[in-house]
Amino acid sequence: MKQIECKEIADLLVDYSDGQLPEEQSQIVERHLKKCNNCRKYLGDLQQSLNIVQEIWRENLAEIESVEISVPVKNRRNINRKYAAIAAGLLIAAGIFSVSMQQTLQRPGDVMTAEQVERKISESASAVRLLATADLLREYDGVKDTLNKLYKHIVATYPDTSAAMEAKIRIKSLM
């Protein structure tokens, strides 16, 4: 008889420990607990296991506490793919640019120093990066003014680059 009673009480102990049992059932459980060592131990295990689990959760929370998303951005994996494509594009562009510059350098009367070549490559890369950033922003609402300023900045700062040409086209498309 005691076994059956313990089983019935055990089914109520989670609700009892959470304070979710109606008063009448609560009193039945309390009366049983006074005389049953096994059920008291089980109640202790229920409470102790929850305490430890909550501590584990708090530790996990402390580990991710510093993660903060302030501005929604596209999924990092997609962004990485996009930037990988941009980076690959940049390398190809830089390669083509270098080759064409070497050919230009070889032409008599049209001399460019290595520093100038490097600066041109650097400017082209900066312009492409800015253009790519602006293109990422295009997918969001309410950023038209920012985009306009960004494209105009590319045109004004890096006028001789292909990115500046692209930026001019983008400005027209925004109108």
Binding site: S66, V67, V73, R76
Partner: peptide, 23 residues
């Protein structure tokens, strides 16, 4: 973050999940 931590996710997972939710 409490939900994410409770499910045992690390900082990288948390960042990924929060980014997805923000989007």
């Amino acid at each position: 973050k409490r939900i994410i931590a409770g499910m045992g996710m690390g900082a990288w997972d948390a960042e990924d999940i929060l980014q997805d939710v923000s989007i």
